[in-house]
Amino acid sequence: MSAQIESSIDPHAHASGESDVDQQTIFDRLVIFVSSVTGWLFPILMLAITAQVVMRKLGHNQAWLDDAQWWMYGFSMTVGFSYAITTQSHVRVDILHQNFSAPKKAKIEVFGLGWLLLPFLIIMADVLFHYGWASFVAGEGSSSANGLHKLYLLKLSLPALFVLAILASMSMMRRHLMVFASARLWTFLLGMFPAAWFMAERASFYILWWAIRATNSEIEVRRISNEPIIAHTIWYGLIIVLVAIIVSFGLSRRASKG
Rank of each mutant, 00 (worst) to 15 (best):
V93P: 01
S76E: 02
K155L: 13
Y73Q: 11
I229H: 00
S157Q: 06
N216K: 05
V21F: 09
N61S: 13
M46G: 06
L128G: 01
K105R: 12
R253F: 03
I5L: 12
L148H: 07
G141P: 09
F111Y: 04
I246Q: 09
R222E: 09
D126I: 15
T233F: 03
S16V: 12
A51S: 12
A196V: 04
I49F: 12
M46C: 12
R222H: 10
L117I: 07
I32E: 06
V241H: 01
R213Q: 10
E109C: 05
T233Y: 02
W186C: 12
E220C: 03
S217L: 09
L30Y: 06
A203C: 10
M170G: 15
P194Q: 05
V31Q: 05
A125C: 11
S182G: 04
K155A: 11
Q88F: 05
A63G: 07
S182W: 01
R202S: 09
Q69D: 04
A15C: 09
A51M: 14
F162E: 15
S256E: 10
A106D: 07
V243T: 07
Y131M: 08
L30K: 13
P43S: 14
V221M: 11
P43Q: 14
S2F: 11
K155R: 01
A211Y: 13
L167F: 13
T25N: 07
G80E: 04
D94M: 06
D66F: 10
G237Q: 03
I246L: 12
F129I: 09
R56D: 02
W186F: 14
M124Y: 08
L116H: 03
V243E: 01
Q23I: 03
H176N: 15
G250W: 04
G74Q: 02
F136D: 00
R29S: 04
Q88G: 00
S89I: 10
Y236L: 15
T87F: 01
S16N: 10
V21E: 10
R254G: 01
W210N: 14
W64E: 11
L238C: 09
G74R: 00
W210K: 14
D22Q: 11
A203I: 11
I240A: 15
L164E: 13
A68G: 02
R184C: 06
M55H: 13
A165C: 14
Q88T: 04
A134P: 04
M46N: 08
S76N: 02
R213A: 14
F205L: 11
T25R: 09
S101D: 08
S217E: 13
R253D: 05
R29M: 05
S76T: 10
F33N: 07
L65Y: 01
P43Y: 13
V53R: 08
R222F: 07
